[in-house]
Nucleic acid binder design. Structure first.
Lengths: 231, 231
DNA sequence: ACCCAAATTTGATCTGAGTCAATTGGCTTT
DNA sequence: AAAGCCAATTGACTCAGATCAAATTTGGGT
């Protein structure tokens, strides 16, 4: 669902953190016309793997799950996108993962061709996009280590601390960690089953490391969580 | 070990495939002075995780393993680098993985500062670097699916086919697949143990899918390998 | 060609996480 | 407030892959 363009980049919640932080006031005014705000309801798919890429997306509000499916239905969540994240870049001309809204999401959508044309003579914007890609690549490698070499306990503890850490940048540090995604989402992100995630949460709670609360957890003993995560 | 600069980009084996493919003849002549060829013997470390980044590297010859270690010594290989691959980009100013030579390796080494200065006013080079990063990101996501959601049999079959595929681009299609890396390297790449990798190789051979030969395998039944990989 | 050290394979056993199967708990609808 | 529904939890059992322990093969150096 597209809303009429009654928005301005200057008021944008992610201005400064996002891809557009590399633009000056003049450029921003031109850039403004390229993007339009689009809302998605909980569970809606923003784009699917193998779809031809027609747009890029800048997340403004909400959380998205980014995932790949195997032919038999097994799912691997390759990341969660938060406000400021930029989605849709690829070489093949097709998306290489799918993206769903977890809860209500607002994105700034850019048609591919005009966006690419805009980049053409803005090396600073390209540089910014490159930085974001390199940062993501580093995160992807960290996640490979988690998937390939960590135990279930370590995976869950690492996830909770990492998720909290990501929220710090946007909402400030807090021991209350909202988890908008389902247990199944967490399992598919960590390469575990839903039962193992649930059992591990319960175990962490029994040991006084976390308290399971509605819609998230409360981190009671960050030090012990760190110890579990580090191995 | 550094050799005196008796080389020219125009003769370079990876010219065309590598990062420098985006440069014209004039630029290339200037670029030439930035890089120097460096050789590494088998097993030598080119750079280590957490080292401050002082150089970027363009692989010219040989194979490298790129890996991360956990404090207790567990290792995850995040990729193998082949000629044409560009290494060393990061945001933090420190390498986020280590890189060793597997067999003899030649790289084209660029000091970070002059390279970054050279990029500054060459948006096409930046664009090329960005493309490489985005391609790697896509590969990283594919590998996450493998690590998180595939069985040992699928992992090994997928690895053999994927490795063969990468060699196609450089050496042409062949059913003889050289495997310069050790079984331990393969295990650490696939999130398995060396024993499981070895058993799976043996199993594939027993089923007539591959033949284990000196320094690699021969792919006897690509179709069946594909079937195993796809699940 | 021979020796030693390392890499690989093979075998036996164990276990962490998966699978299968109920419950339980929270929300929404009526 | 009862019923229905889906997500999450819990329990019992299984199994794929890990671990532990030998062989066996390979390769490099003399």
């Amino acid at each position: 669902m597209i809303e009429p363009n009654g928005h301005f980049c200057n008021d944008c919640v992610v201005r400064g953190a996002a891809v557009c932080s590399s633009l000056n006031a003049t450029e921003l005014r031109e850039f403004e016309h390229l993007g339009r705000r689009v809302h998605f309801d909980s569970g809606e798919t923003v784009f699917s793997e193998e779809d031809i890429t027609t747009s890029f997306y800048n997340v403004l509000e909400g959380v998205m799950r980014l995932y790949k499916l195997l032919p038999d239905g097994r799912r691997q969540i390759v990341g969660f996108a938060l406000p400021g994240d930029f989605l849709g870049m690829n070489i093949s001309g097709r998306h290489n993962f799918s993206a769903d809204a977890i809860g209500v999401v607002t994105v700034c959508q850019f048609a591919k061709a005009p966006f690419n044309r805009f980049i053409e003579d803005r090396p600073l914007l390209l540089k910014r996009i490159n930085e974001l890609a390199i940062r993501e690549l580093s995160q992807a490698r960290d996640h490979m280590v988690l998937l390939g070499r960590r135990s279930a306990d370590e995976k869950v503890a690492t996830f909770l601390l990492g998720w909290r850490e990501r929220l710090v940048a946007r909402k400030g540090l807090s021991d209350t960690v909202p988890l908008p995604m389902s247990r199944q989402d967490i399992a598919d992100y960590l390469g575990l089953t839903i039962e193992t995630v649930s059992r591990t949460f319960t175990k962490l709670e029994r040991h006084g490391v976390i308290e399971i609360i509605h819609g998230g957890i409360s981190l009671l003993d960050p030090a012990r969580a760190e110890a579990m995560a580090a191995a």
